[in-house]
Nucleic acid binder design. Structure first.
Length: 883
DNA sequence: ATGGTGCACTAACCTTTGCATAGC
DNA sequence: GGCTATGCTTTGGTTAGTGCACCA
């Protein structure tokens, strides 16, 4: 290593990229240098130990520190260096970027997990259809509540008393019974009047179905992330696993069981809709919570376990608590108070008392909760779970009941029996967001089928759509399930009975649209035309709007296309509905440039449908399209293709300016179907490179055909047929693109001729190959046999003869059995007596029938090795060293 | 203190049509 | 001399993703 100066230069050069650290060991005035692989995330990189690549840091360690045992041995073995600070500061920490492989893996996991969750949903749905459970649950229902099944025009309000009763009688008890089959778990939950959130929600579905109400079991599929996640803790499946051990395993609980009796009746009567309690009430209630003996002990044990998981370890106790941990503890306390299965306060205090310095600790958990509750209550009817960053408490399961008396045409009404919420679809997203959950997939299950109803609950679709699997796959998965679901839930809704015509439905759409306009702070009137165009597929005639499924589809589609305009610019980057010019890519343009939907931070917002992708003329050719004559380019951009110095003069023929380095781009509306010059007189029209670019069948000149066989060129040449090599793509090799050729393009009339010739040629080649292989096989057989014979001959001569002192070696031959290897003799000119391979190999070969005769004519002498080779006519040869 | 926003930076991805030399 | 096989070498623009400062 050179001096410090050089080292520091290297350090500067490798600023922020240090992979290794070196330490200079001063020993006998000769600095030694060694490196330590840092704890860099990029571990898969092979360390490069060339000096020019390595990044060195200097440090001095006294030699004596290595030699404290008095060992003067010059070799240093196993040096351990301890650094005061970590080799890399957080600032220098390199982020490991996700690779395509990571993404693919994550997507596979995501899909598999989705399928599992759908299967789970179907299982629950099937269990909810069980007549025994339905009957058992129905038997518990007070008689006056049974009347609801007689209601012809069911409304959400009519369901409130049932929800109230259910909520008073069935509570979330937190313990997840994932180990049990769901059917028996549901039975147990019914007996115990409570269970996991999933079971309680399912029981509510059972109840509604028992009352002959068209009901779906709705579940938020809390699926593993579609994108590779660096932080495994954030992965939902890890999350859920972790929380399954706790009281609130992917809980849906938002309001306590104890409190809701009062709050339910009050709020439900107050607004007739929302019977949600608030945390302010919870705070008051919590001070009066009575410990219930029997359940307490169990719960305490469990809470102890849960707390133990996060804090009971002595190491953890001493560690300063993270915010999330504290929040989790508060969550825990809330959970216990909510279910009236609370641990004694001293326990709670103990659980939070180990981080006195924590800012959160300075106020009591309930004060904190009160503050949060106040915040959440500031937004009208907000669901009071907005505490903590932990992903617990989010609503994951609920029911949807079809209320024919709602909304003129009937409506699927959200009913969260766990939290006693009726028609709270607009609040689900807020509740989920408060618990850091996104409603990526909300799926309704009925009749063994499933339907994606995410749109109903998710207003900000643009936020969740990047986290959903691509729609083609998802739609394909759900298509058959959707039919099943539709069959189970569809019912004819004659429009005339509802006094609603198709125009009214479109009026509804218009209303939604205008709502969207209002939120977008802009007039959308002119957008209606475009909107209507996009809705064409949903604009079903009055005659076809005859079932709930179709109506719901319209409703969901309307929601899909009337999302409010985002208020931040970045949301427009990949927004499926809206776009601003700022976030268009190099190859995108607005065409037509309008209508204007609104403004965002001074940027005009356009519909995403106006964004068109541009391509060069050549690129359009690949799509089987050509740019119309005299079309001016829609956009001229700087070329990013590398021009070699030798070909830099090449001028872009499409460029308006005519200068090099720019590319003209055209939109699809400027193209027409490709019209290539046809083949004339058996001549294939070729491009400037003397080939045909076969990106697709559309790219073939009329009258030509692409023959995708190897070794066709010599055949075509031999027949004198005009052809062109078919280039089918590129391969990136050695840092550059290399064209890939596959077969040739010939005129159609020569297709049969050339294929026949090709078949003959291939046949001939095949036969030739077989012959070649046979020759090789025989040659190898001959070599093998020869070597064996020689070996035996030598054994006989030098080993056997020691005993018998016989010079002549007997050798058995069998003429009759050697027919199989006649070719051997043809190749090698052997003796007339044919060697039987089977005999030689199977027997000792020591026979008395043949005596080798080594004629002097067949001898050869190698002067270098001073050996004489003698050959018998049977093919046996021996080498004799002359002394 | 916290979360949202926007800018700046980074790394993955996409791009896309040789050349020199040795051996036969 | 011509043909073929082999080895060499790895750009730079675009864009999605991430970190961080700033602000409400």
């Amino acid at each position: 290593m050179a001096g410090n100066e050089e080292s520091s230069t290297k350090q500067k050069k490798s600023k922020g990229k240090s992979k290794f650290q070196s330490v200079d060991i001063i020993r006998d005035n000769q600095p030694l240098k060694f490196r330590q692989i840092s704890t860099n995330n990029n571990l898969e990189e092979e360390p490069q130990f060339e000096d020019n690549d390595a990044e060195w840091e200097e440090g001095c360690i006294q030699y004596s520190s290595f030699d404290n045992n008095g060992n003067n041995d010059k070799d240093i073995k196993g040096v351990t260096v301890e650094f005061d600070a970590l080799p890399e500061s957080p600032k220098k920490k390199r982020i490991r970027r996700v690779t395509a492989e990571d993404k693919e893996y994550a997507e596979l996991v995501h899909k598999a997990h989705l399928l599992c969750l759908i299967a789970r949903g179907r299982l629950i749905d099937a269990a909810c259809d069980d007549p025994l459970i339905q009957a058992a649950l129905l038997s518990l229902l007070p008689p006056h509540l049974l009347k609801i099944s007689e209601t012809s025009q069911l409304t959400a309000n009519a369901l409130t008393p049932i929800i109230s009763w259910f909520h008073q009688n069935f509570h979330v008890k937190g313990l997840d019974s994932a180990e049990k089959p769901f059917h028996s778990a549901l039975t147990s939950a019914l007996e115990a009047h409570g269970g996991s959130p999933e079971e309680v929600a399912a029981l509510s579905v059972v109840l509604f179905r028992a009352l002959n109400l068209t009901t779906r079991f709705v579940s938020v599929l809390d699926v593993a992330s579609l994108k590779p996640d660096h932080d495994v803790d954030e992965l939902p499946y890890f999350e859920s696993r972790r929380h399954r051990k706790g009281i609130f395993s992917s809980s849906t609980l938002m309001v306590s069981g104890m409190s809701t009796g009062a709050s339910l009746s009050k709020s439900s009567t107050a607004n007739g809709k929302n019977i949600l309690g608030t945390f302010v009430k919870r705070e008051n209630l919590s001070t009066d919570i009575q410990v219930k003996d029997s359940l307490e002990s169990n719960q305490l044990k469990h809470s102890d376990q849960t707390i133990g998981e996060t804090q009971n370890s002595s190491e953890d106790d001493k560690r300063p608590k993270r915010k999330g941990d504290l929040e989790f503890e508060m969550q825990l306390q809330m959970a216990m108070s909510s279910t009236a299965l609370i641990a004694p306060e001293r326990k709670l205090e103990a659980s939070t008392s180990d981080s006195p310095s924590s800012p959160l600790h300075s106020c009591s958990p309930f004060k904190k909760l009160k503050r949060i509750a106040e915040e959440s209550s500031s937004s009208s009817q907000a669901i009071s779970t907005a505490f903590g960053s932990r992903k617990v408490g989010a609503p994951l399961y609920w029911a949807e009941v079809y209320c024919s008396g709602e909304n003129m045409t009937g409506k699927w009404v959200h009913i969260d029996a766990v939290n006693a919420i009726v028609d709270g679809e607009l609040k689900v997203e807020a509740a989920a967001a408060a618990c850091k959950k996104s409603l990526r997939y909300v799926v309704a299950f009925a009749g063994h089928g499933a339907k994606d109803v995410t749109r109903r609950y998710c207003a900000k679709w643009y936020k969740i759509s990047p986290h959903r699997v691509f729609s083609e796959w998802w739609n394909a998965v759900l298509s058959s399930l959707k039919e099943l679901e539709l069959r189970a839930t569809s019912g004819v809704v004659p429009l005339h009975q509802c006094g609603m015509k198709s125009t009214d439905i479109m009026g509804e759409k218009s209303k939604h649209l205008n709502q969207g306009c209002a939120s977008g702070k802009s007039s959308f009137a002119e957008n209606y035309v475009n909107f209507d165009k996009e809705h064409q597929k949903f604009a079903i005639s009055s005659s076809s709007i005859d079932n709930r499924g179709a109506l719901e589809d319209i409703e969901l589609a309307t929601r899909a296309l009337t999302e409010p305009l985002p208020t931040n610019q970045q949301a427009y980057r990949n927004h499926p509905l809206y776009a601003i010019e700022k976030w268009l890519t190099k190859y995108q343009i607005l065409h037509p440039k309008g209508p204007v939907l609104g403004l965002c931070s001074g940027h005009t917002v356009y519909p995403r449908s106006c964004v068109q992708t541009l391509h060069t003329k050549e690129r359009w050719l690949r799509e089987g399209l050509q740019v119309k004559e005299n079309e001016p380019p829609s956009k001229v951009v700087k070329s990013n293709s590398r021009k070699r110095s030798g070909q830099a003069v090449e001028i872009d023929e499409f460029s308006e300016t005519g200068s090099d380095g720019v590319v003209s781009l055209f939109g699809k509306w400027q193209t027409e179907p490709l019209r290539l010059p046809p083949a004339v007189d058996g001549i294939v029209p070729k491009n400037e490179r003397g080939q045909v670019d076969v990106w697709s069948e559309k790219c073939l000149p009329p009258g030509t055909v692409h023959l995708r066989f190897p070794r066709l060129v010599p055949v075509a040449k031999r027949l004198g047929i005009n052809f062109a090599p078919a280039m089918v793509g590129f391969e990136f090799r050695n840092g550059r693109s290399v064209p890939v050729y596959e077969g040739i393009v010939v005129c159609t009339e020569f297709k049969e001729v050339i294929l026949e010739a090709y078949a003959e040629e291939e046949q001939r080649r095949h036969e030739e190959e077989i012959r070649k292989e046979e020759r090789q096989a025989l040659s190898r057989w001959y070599q093998l046999l020869s070597s064996m014979v020689i070996r035996q001959r030598l054994n006989n001569t030098y080993v056997y003869n020691q005993e018998s002192e016989t010079v002549a070696v007997p050798f058995k031959t069998e003429k009759k059995t050697c027919a199989d290897i006649t070719n051997l003799n043809e190749i090698t000119e052997p003796c007339q007596e044919k060697v039987c391979a089977t005999k030689i190999i199977g027997s000792d070969m020591l026979t008395q029938d043949h005596e080798h005769v080594f004629l002097t004519d067949d001898e050869s002498f190698d002067e270098d090795s001073m050996t004489r080779s003698k050959r018998c006519r049977c093919g046996v040869s021996i080498q004799v060293e002359e002394l």
